[in-house]
């Protein structure tokens, strides 16, 4: 339960960070989480999952204003990735970015301790 709460809070941090300062919040928060979390808490996985969830929430928020799925379909078509491809990319990008950033700092932290 505590872990789930942590993921949710981290997800919220990713969402708020992205909303306010943009996508750079993802590697920065991921890296910060990697430094803050102990290795047994699997910081890379948690960061990746939380970032993806945070972006998912942001997408839902944007969709509440209007035709976000239409945008996804159009951009997916233009990128020749399709709707699903675009949505997958939208989730995989923060997931991989946050996880790799957390992985780097987590490994560095482990090396220094």
């Amino acid at each position: 339960m505590k872990a789930l709460l942590g993921i949710l809070m981290l997800s919220a941090a990713f969402a708020v960070g992205t909303y306010t300062v943009g996508w750079w919040a993802v590697p920065v928060l991921g890296a910060a989480w990697g430094l803050a979390a102990t290795p047994d808490r699997r910081p890379a996985r948690v960061a990746g999952l939380s970032a993806a969830l945070g972006w998912c929430a942001l997408f839902a928020l944007t969709a509440s204003y209007g035709s976000a799925m239409e945008v996804a379909t159009a951009v997916g078509t233009i990128m020749k990735a399709g709707t699903a491809g675009f949505l997958a990319l939208m989730l995989l990008f923060p997931l991989a970015l946050a996880a790799s950033a957390a992985g780097v700092t987590s490994a560095l932290r482990g090396a220094s301790t």
Partner: peptide, 29 residues
């Protein structure tokens, strides 16, 4: 995320679900 890669624009600002391409849905109002 930050730089163009061939024909692809920087992915970070494009995919950002709050301020990126899908922001167009919000701006449509």
């Amino acid at each position: 995320g930050a730089r163009r890669s061939g024909p692809l624009p920087p992915l970070g600002p494009l995919l950002d679900p709050a301020n990126g391409a899908v922001g167009a849905a919000r701006a449509a109002r």
